[in-house]
Design a protein around this nucleic acid. Structure first.
Lengths: 165, 165
DNA sequence: CCCTTTTCACCTAGGTGGTAAGAT
DNA sequence: ATCTTACCACCTAGGTGAAAAGGG
């Protein structure tokens, strides 16, 4: 399913005329597996399960000019997560009940013939720790459910109050 | 609205590793304005109205590698037509009751610095005369309406027989 | 007991021709 | 008389959490 809320960034400082690829991936926060205790808190269940294939999600507008990326907020709303190790839809594969850190990467599309040499300097990664989350197959906390229902337009059918509450 | 049926092409002979832009535009077939006589045939109503802004529709996957374009049929299903001269959605603007010839263009994205010099040879246009049509705001022929209802999935609500008829 | 899978009603978002009213 | 516009019911396509069933 889609990740919600959507990861969004506002970009500054690109070369407006140069091409860039924007992408995201997810790395484990720790080597632990968690479980929900009485639907109220996370406790450690033991060591992490074997790592999932480390896939990457390219923003579907990639490649695009710096001017294009900078002129409005970039939204990764097409990014989908799955726990299916055999997924062949190109979705990001995560282990349920494990904690993850989303990462955002910017790749400058180097027009030089020997661009591979400069791969290091043409690549930049940004991490926002406040975007860490625990992957689940079902919500383990009623307040998270209510927050989703209140903020995701597709869950409007489950609301019982005005949207401005 | 969308053009239906959708313009589709199968592509051969590209350089699999090179980038290409695919686009379409529409040119008048003649300098005439038409009218529908008793909903059964087209008659000439006089000289064409002033030409509309000559817009172009880039296939949204552009630019992409030759290998990508060739591996399946390319479908221009996002292309939209309008008769609104003030349209600011980037749609193709046509005069109603005029005849048009869709054109398909392939642009090779030349990696050379002085690529402008080679614009001529990096550009190729394909015209399929069987795709000519008369632009309308409402169908002028009941058999066209029935053909659309029978073949467009979004018009399923107007069908009264099985789809395989 | 806790987590996962499947199915479902209920949404968003948007593409159909029908239809009635309006314009020339 | 003929064409255009605006709105509508009815679709496709797909994103929600609920709920029930399944698994360890």
């Amino acid at each position: 399913r889609r990740m919600f809320p959507t990861f969004q960034v506002k970009i500054f400082g690109m070369d407006p005329m140069a091409d860039y690829m924007l992408l995201m991936d997810f790395v484990p926060v720790d080597d632990k597996r968690y479980y929900a205790f009485h639907s109220s808190s996370w406790l450690v269940a033991g060591k992490a399960d074997p790592a999932t294939p480390g896939r990457v999600h390219y923003h579907p507008d990639s490649p695009a000019k710096g001017a294009q990326w900078m002129k409005q907020i970039v939204s990764f709303d097409k990014l989908k997560l799955t726990n299916n190790l055999l997924d062949d839809n190109g979705h990001i594969i995560l282990n349920s009940m494990h904690r993850y850190q989303p990462r955002f990467h910017v790749v400058y599309v180097d027009p030089r013939k020997d661009s591979e040499k400069y791969a290091e300097e043409n690549f930049k990664t940004f991490v926002f720790e406040e975007t860490r989350f625990t992957a689940v197959t079902a919500y383990q906390n009623h307040r998270i459910t209510q927050l989703k229902i209140a903020s995701n337009p597709f869950a409007k059918g489950f609301r019982d109050c005005d949207p401005e509450d």
